[in-house]
């Protein structure tokens, strides 16, 4: 496999890849899991799988897509494990409190709250499109939904955000 950095051994190479895409992975994991510890675990597991499968990845230019796919699976596993845990709802409130106590403006806090109120699939799509700047086609490959479905979801979610911002309305077909 072509080295991404010259004169490095494999460990350094994996480390480099991981550092390069860390923030992108964080944005995606955070869209799926509210808890920072869960986000950390999901990314850590993804790192383990990168170690295990590095040699099998034949197209290094597609490594980001692979990483995000694995990460989303790990996030789903953690989410499903904790699905019946009522404390997840409390975590959402804790996260909101951090916003309120931070230096964010009221407008930014409100926008953050609206984004978090989206359906989990829509949040994921947004984090891939706006956070990771992927194309619809690439998103379709990662999450396994067809491109039209993704476009429809984005359109509906954006209409919901617009309504919330402009009129404070909550009608949203999740």
């Amino acid at each position: 496999m072509k080295k991404l950095k010259e004169n490095t051994d494999e460990n350094d190479e994996i480390c480099y890849i991981f550092e390069k895409y860390m923030l992108d992975m964080y944005k995606v994991a955070k869209s799926r899991l509210y808890d920072e510890e869960d986000v950390y675990d999901a990314i850590q597991e993804t790192g383990y799988r990168l170690y295990k499968n590095m040699k099998k990845i034949k197209q290094p230019e597609k490594i980001k897509i692979w990483l995000l796919k694995v990460l989303i699976n790990e996030c789903n596993k953690i989410y499903n494990r904790k699905k019946k845990e009522v404390k997840l709802q409390e975590k959402i409130y804790e996260e909101e409190l951090k916003n309120v106590n931070s230096n964010y403006s009221n407008e930014e806090i409100e926008f953050d709250f609206i984004i978090k109120s989206l359906n989990k699939d829509d949040r994921l799509i947004f984090s891939l499109y706006y956070g990771n700047k992927l194309t619809i086609k690439e998103i379709s490959k990662i999450i396994g939904k067809n491109e039209n479905t993704i476009k429809t979801r984005m359109k509906r979610a954006k209409e919901y955000i617009k309504d919330r911002l402009e009129k404070g309305e909550e009608k949203y077909e999740k």
């Binding site: 350094d12 480390c15 991981f18 550092e19 964080y26 990314i43 850590q44 790192g47 383990y48």
Partner: peptide, 9 residues
């Protein structure tokens, strides 16, 4: 999170 890659390695 910034130290995670190195800690895994």
């Amino acid at each position: 999170f910034y130290t995670l890659p190195k800690s895994i390695a």
